[in-house]
């Protein structure tokens, strides 16, 4: 393997881990601010202590589960997707964020 290959690989790894950290920060911001998940849900990683909906640290939902419920809503939970409260990209970001951080 050439030295160049390792250089490129190192750059790629650094770049992608920075991108992941960035996505995580975006997810947390959505969770606590725009989507206001924190008002109703407890999730330690986000520092939230809401008590209306289920505790996400206990529930540990998958990305698909979060996405589904955020899109369509349930009971007091708004339909963030159907009602246009979040963009599809924002729903992806916050869903990945919750699935990754719940229970941590």
């Amino acid at each position: 393997m050439s030295a160049n290959f390792y250089k490129i690989l190192t750059i790629l790894v650094l770049f992608s881990s920075a991108a992941i950290a960035d996505e995580n920060a975006k997810g947390m911001k959505l969770f606590n601010e725009k989507a206001m998940c924190a008002t109703c849900h407890t999730m330690k990683a986000a520092g939230s202590k809401g008590n209306v909906g289920p505790n996400l640290d206990t529930l540990k939902p998958t990305v698909a589960q979060v996405k589904d419920i955020v899109t369509h809503g349930l009971g007091a939970m708004p339909a963030f997707g159907e009602d246009g409260l979040l963009t599809p990209e924002e729903i992806d970001t916050v869903s990945i964020y919750v699935a990754k951080n719940a229970g941590k």
Binding site: L59, A64, Q65
Partner: peptide, 10 residues
Amino acid sequence: AGVAAASALV
């Protein structure tokens, strides 16, 4: 398992 089909619910 693990794919969306399995998880349209909690």
